[in-house]
Write a protein that binds this DNA or RNA. Structure first.
Length: 428
DNA sequence: TGACGTCAAGATCCG
DNA sequence: CGGATCTTGACGTCA
């Protein structure tokens, strides 16, 4: 029997880009009523289920669930007994997660601080961790589903602050401890310090590459693989495979800011340098599932042209609107159905997307898409398209209105091929 | 007191 | 009304 190729799982955090029905809703305190809270939870569970469905369909096996699933989750103003009220919805979604073999996690933000000297802050942090653990329990997740936490503040005395983390960790319920893992952050706790804590407390450690680049331990010479391997040793069998965070610096933003998309060449070189593929990568990137699919396709076990063709279906009009040259190059590239030119494919796609907008190319793409409706559109639909197109040609504005119009046409006329296009991401 | 990070809600203005 | 463009919220730490 042939041995199964070990491939990394690659996931994304909280939200999708360009997937219908996956938008979460929030609520401000001053508008909070039990009715509104209940309605939003119900809506958000539908959105979560839509994301889980999307992941299942697209081979994504790693996903972080948003902490905003329940609005105002730990505030006294939220009096809705949501855990019992939505028990069955959670269980149903949990069943889907298990059936599609997804590993889900959660990640309280920088404001959940377990090592604060302020007991009030610690109390709220524990409550927040209980909330996160409750979500995972309701979904029926096992110990391989993790809650990723930062160590917290330094308060002028890091050694003492780390001791306080240990003391407060021991106060946590088993329900939390079962899922809790710790991660290096980009301002205070380096990977070396987090490993010290993790090794002392027997807590798995998540290595975050960008945090490490921004906040490295002083005078170190070890390669990244050293820290990743040392973190690997903190993962027990029951915790599942080692999980890491991966992101790239946005060159236009401040140090530590996540990039718009993942540069696949850079990511592949990173993995190559690690010398391992038996680990999970949670991507932290603006374009979310789009980059996750890109990286997943690069490492997936079944490297078949069909996966690139599916991607091409989503990207093609966006590419056409930017670079007809790359559009043609990609079409040719995908001709050989036995090949799998994944790196070149995404290089050409991303190169096109990074090309400055060209008016003529935008019009070309618009007319190309209009071709779907030429024969089936009503007279009103045709007039509106022509009016907006004229306006765009004359003034350069109303491109979003045009896209909106075309997207609505695609909905009305059931052009499912168009509905999935990344071309419509900004207006969906 | 504002920056930090995050994303949707809410406000406001335009045509 | 659709659409564009701010501003606010909810959290804790640190300069």
């Amino acid at each position: 029997m042939r041995e199964e190729k070990i491939v990394p799982r690659i996931g994304y955090a909280c939200l999708t880009v360009g997937v219908e029905g996956t938008q979460f809703k929030t609520l401000t305190l001053k508008n909070a009523t039990p009715e509104k809270i209940t309605a939003i939870i119900s809506h958000n569970l539908d959105a979560l289920e839509a994301i889980i469905d999307y992941n299942g369909k697209n081979g994504i096996r790693l996903f972080r669930i948003t902490s905003d699933l329940i609005p105002l989750s730990t505030l006294p103003q939220n009096t809705v007994p949501w855990a019992t009220l939505f028990q069955e919805r959670f269980a149903a979604i949990g069943t889907k997660i298990k059936k599609t073999n997804q590993r889900v996690s959660m990640h309280p933000g920088q404001y959940t601080v377990l090592n604060s000297p302020d007991e009030n802050v610690v109390g709220k942090a524990i409550e927040d961790l209980e909330y996160h653990a409750t979500i995972l329990e309701l979904l029926g997740c096992d110990q391989t589903s993790k809650i990723i936490l930062h160590v917290g503040g330094a308060y002028g005395d890091k050694i003492q602050a780390m001791e306080r983390f240990k003391t407060n960790y021991l106060r946590l319920s088993d329900k939390i401890k079962k899922h809790l893992v710790i991660e290096n952050d980009d301002r205070v706790y380096t990977i070396e310090e987090v490993l010290t804590l993790g090794e002392a407390l027997n807590i798995p450690v998540v290595y975050d590459n960008l945090h490490d680049a921004v906040n490295p331990s002083p005078n170190r010479e070890e390669p990244i693989s050293y820290w990743v391997d040392r973190a690997e040793a903190t993962w027990k069998k029951a915790d599942g495979r080692q999980k890491t965070h991966y992101s790239q610096q946005d060159p236009t933003k401040h140090l530590g800011a996540h990039s718009a998309t993942i540069d696949l060449d850079v990511f592949m070189q990173y993995v190559k340098n690690l010398g391992r593929t038996d680990l999970d990568f949670m991507l932290e990137v603006k374009d979310k599932n789009i980059s996750a699919l890109k990286c997943h396709n690069a490492f997936r076990a079944d490297q078949k042209m069909i996966h690139l063709e599916n991607e091409w279906a989503r990207y093609k009009y966006l590419v056409l609107a930017k670079s007809p040259k790359n559009y043609q190059l990609i079409r040719t590239l995908l001709n050989d159905k036995r090949s799998y030119p994944v790196e070149l494919f995404y290089r050409l796609v991303d190169e096109a997307l990074n090309t400055p907008s060209d008016f003529g190319h935008e019009v070309n793409a618009l007319e190309h898409i209009w071709g779907y409706f030429k024969t089936c559109a009503t007279e009103t639909e045709r007039r509106r398209f022509e009016k907006l197109l004229e306006e765009f040609k004359n003034t350069g504005t109303s491109l979003p209105s045009l896209k909106n119009h075309l997207y609505k046409l695609a909905t009305v006329h059931h052009e499912n091929y168009l509905l999935q296009a990344y071309y419509f991401n900004e207006i969906r």
